[in-house]
Design a binder for these strands. Structure first.
Lengths: 196, 196, 196, 196
DNA sequence: GATGAATGAGTCTTCATTCAT
DNA sequence: GATGAATGAAGACTCATTCAT
């Protein structure tokens, strides 16, 4: 039940910025309001509480990630290309929304029990897409049969997420193409050099 | 300069439990003291502040992880076995200290700028070990040359960490062997079924 | 200067309901507006402030009580019947407007200094009627001379009010006739069994 | 489970003063602390919340009233004297603790549903004492049989309470003896002049 | 060494009131 | 006349930290 739409966008952006800089607990409604250029009361006019504001951010972000990835996948025919596109889409999403993604990993991923609903949303949403592709790939014989898909899906997500955040947040400079290529090589071909 | 008190072990355990359940900001010194069976003042007698207590936990944890992994690595001769052992050691460490590892990912990893020193410690410490092994492997020709080692090291760490936490924290039951095998297969051999 | 709006009646009823459920301080203009089926701004179009709305309620209520009692009194000839009628009228008013009367006792009576004007209104209004009747009765020799009229008038009001509210608000079921009879017996004849 | 006793007395007195001046909702913890000469945090160290502080006040007050009245009653032999003593004791309690009694009537009596437990405490406690005496009196034939005891007990309480508060809080000067005598005459003998 | 009562700065949240439409 | 989005002052409550015993 969205209220005014005029105010919600600036609030959204300010909130993502503050939450990702300070973390959920250290972020203050005061600062979010100030950065959004509105009064504190207006924040509460639009969102019932700090928690609701936070959760709506997470929800919205997960939806955007899903949408972005689905769009890219839909463009490819074969499962292999789809998986490749998925990795590319996740990486590019993490690059564009690095602040939001930091939030995603630190608050939602790290904690868990307190945000069960949102976690489940992520798992059945984005992780579910990876899992489906892996299963289809196994059926088609192009993905190794000896992979348990849940674990493998989490592994793929984790590898991209951690490598991406490390590069985008903590490296002064990074080479996007090299990052993407290394992740694809690692995940599709593995660490091992193929012998002869 | 550690104080010599015999109180530090129970404090350590209580602190890990509370911090990982509540997160840094929501954890209270009151509760840590209560769970450790001591008075709040005693906490401050042993640690200057909440932050110092927290950081000493993280420090200690990273050291344990490094030590555990190094021990396993030292037992193997060839680089390949060492890498395999490293993944096993990380997984087993995450299983044993799941609470601590949740902390590690949510507070230290997710945030960053605020704990730079600790992050750097993790990166140059544990991630550094992975990186060194990968480099040695490339020199020996058993690791793919087309992998940028920093990215690959982060990818390996992230894949294991995320898959492990998901299994240990959120799955009612998990099959440790299958988890380990899938991660090894994924990381060493890649997703692709080898043709021919 | 009452505004002419047709909105004032629904507002009145909603306001009495909300104020008596929550008390003055916990009642919100928001809820009063919602229950009256109007917008918050409209409330302020009709009443300058929360306090004014509240006071106009109290004023109105005291006037209704006075009017009801005066009407009943006017019907009787002798002072004794008038006093009897007064008690009956107060009891029946408290039964019909129990919410309003709860308000009256809790906010106006209990506090005092803050609403001096309204209190004075009540005292010189309704209590004044009782006092006048008692004085007339004393002059006529049908009311005990050893009663100080101010105190007695307050005592009569208090006995009826407290017994009435207790019955109407907190007893699941009550017997109106028995209530009335007991109050009349208590107040006119006293507790003591007459000897001889 | 009382905490420190050193701090609780000044808090008690400051709280009664502030609550009775402002009412529950308008009273602030800040002001109570200031008047008690302690920091706000200390208030919360001794009482979990504003509500708990308030309720403990009410509880304590009801107990004191009960104790005072029981003490006086115990000194008399016959039921009639006991009832007389009860009225005297209530009046003198209301004179001494006028602030507290204002609180009692405005917050607890007036509201009700929100403080059910405390109300019940009062009803079964103090009102119960009156009721018991009336019943015993009826059995002994010295109290009118045509009085329903619940109603009569409430009436007695209400008459004394309302007359007392009016005198002690709002009259510049009052004559205690006259007040007491009028109430006793009113309640024991009734309004009616005895004919013949 | 150990304790826990006391502190007060810092936050979330509520709500009467205003005003542009 | 009517609306409801926006405001900001005010207040309950938390908790890291201190210090006298």
């Amino acid at each position: 039940m969205e209220r005014t739409s005029t105010k919600r966008l600036p609030i959204f952006e300010a909130a993502v910025a503050v939450f990702s800089e300070k973390g959920f607990a250290k972020a203050t409604m005061e600062e979010i309001a100030r950065r959004a250029g509105i009064a504190k009361g207006t924040l509460y006019y639009n969102y019932r509480s700090k928690k609701e504001l936070f959760l709506s951010l997470i929800e919205e972000g997960i939806e955007r990630l899903e949408a972005a990835v689905k769009r890219e996948i839909a463009r490819r025919r074969d499962t292999s290309s789809k998986l490749e596109a998925l990795i590319g889409a996740q990486l590019s999403f993490f690059e564009e929304y690095r602040d939001y993604c930091k939030l995603l990993l630190s608050e939602v991923w790290g904690l868990g029990s307190r945000w069960e609903k949102q976690l489940e949303r992520l798992r059945s949403g984005y992780i579910g897409i990876i899992k489906d592709l892996l299963q289809r790939g196994q059926a088609e014989g192009i993905i190794r049969q000896d992979l348990e898909v849940n674990t493998a899906a989490m592994g793929v997500f984790g590898a991209v997420a951690v490598a991406a955040l490390n590069a985008f947040l903590f490296e002064r400079q990074y080479h996007y193409e090299s990052l993407l290529q290394t992740l694809k090589n690692l995940l599709f071909l593995g660490l091992n050099e193929r012998e002869g």
